[in-house]
Design a protein around this nucleic acid. Structure first.
Lengths: 143, 143
DNA sequence: TAAATTTGCTTGCATTATGCAAGTACAAAG
DNA sequence: CTTTGTACTTGCATAATGCAAGCAAATTTA
């Protein structure tokens, strides 16, 4: 009945490598994205995402994100049947990375119009965009 | 004798998702890092990296990076036995992302002193650091 | 110039991660 | 008290990664 604690191994001391060991997989950043920009907060929310994550993988990624302290599991105010996932400050601090990924993507991919609008805003006033977005997200932590 | 062209599939139109489809694996960004910051340019160079990539995986990642136009394969000036890999502009444009990952990592990991020095420099004058580093890298492209 | 070494891979097989479909337990609604 | 919703787990298939060995062409060494 022992849940295997996925040992958090580092491949090296390199900051890029260490970071990838935390969120450098196919799904983690997409879950963070959903929480940051689409107000998703429950298991069911994440399942509905356009990319179609499998149920077992979602459970596994949520566990990993929790172990790495990027998210916290809380009881949902509406119902005991639900679980509320919330970003930590550590995850909110990923915002600059995520913004830069958006800016890179905007240069090399065709982006849907609605998202493109947000990227334009982020581009024209990057620091301000990050600051206000981070502030919004922090509100939810209020602890 | 047909080399299978790994079809480049997108999971969605989301810029984060599309970007991860390009470099969101365990190794691609580390190869880019080696080329950006450690002047590595050959298959043998990449093999020597601290994280220890397997030979077949390295070959596979190099092929993927080339297909996604993040690197180019050129003949090595020193020897026909060698292959020279070079970053494209598309890869150099990843620099802001990589810098932000460094800054995030610096906040949440213990970083080796030499790398920490570089991060401090990047932090104190981010735009300038990116600009000068990118300029250095572009020199090598000179077509 | 023949043999050994370097370089950039490929190949075969083991292990791990991810994907899919079904099932389960508990809470809540009817 | 049955049905539905929510958050998972489980079993099995496929894909990605890891490890050790092998290989061909180029270069170096003897």
């Amino acid at each position: 009945m022992n849940k295997r604690i996925e040992t958090i191994k580092k491949r090296s001391e390199c900051p890029i490598s260490c970071s990838l060991d935390v969120f450098g997989d196919k799904w983690s950043l997409l879950i963070i994205r959903d929480m940051m920009f689409y107000n998703k907060s429950t298991y069911g929310d994440f399942l509905k995402s356009g990319e179609g994550i499998a149920t077992n993988i979602l459970a596994s990624r949520l566990q990993s994100l929790e172990e790495h302290k990027l998210i916290e599991k809380l009881e949902h105010p509406e119902s005991k049947a639900k679980v509320l996932y919330r970003l930590t400050q550590k995850a909110i601090d990923l915002l600059p990375i995520i913004v830069e990924i958006h800016l890179w993507a905007e240069k090399y991919f065709d982006i849907p119009p609605d998202i493109k609008a947000m990227i334009k805003e982020a581009k024209s006033g990057k620091d301000e965009f990050i600051k206000t977005t981070a502030r919004q997200l922090k509100k939810q932590i209020k602890t």
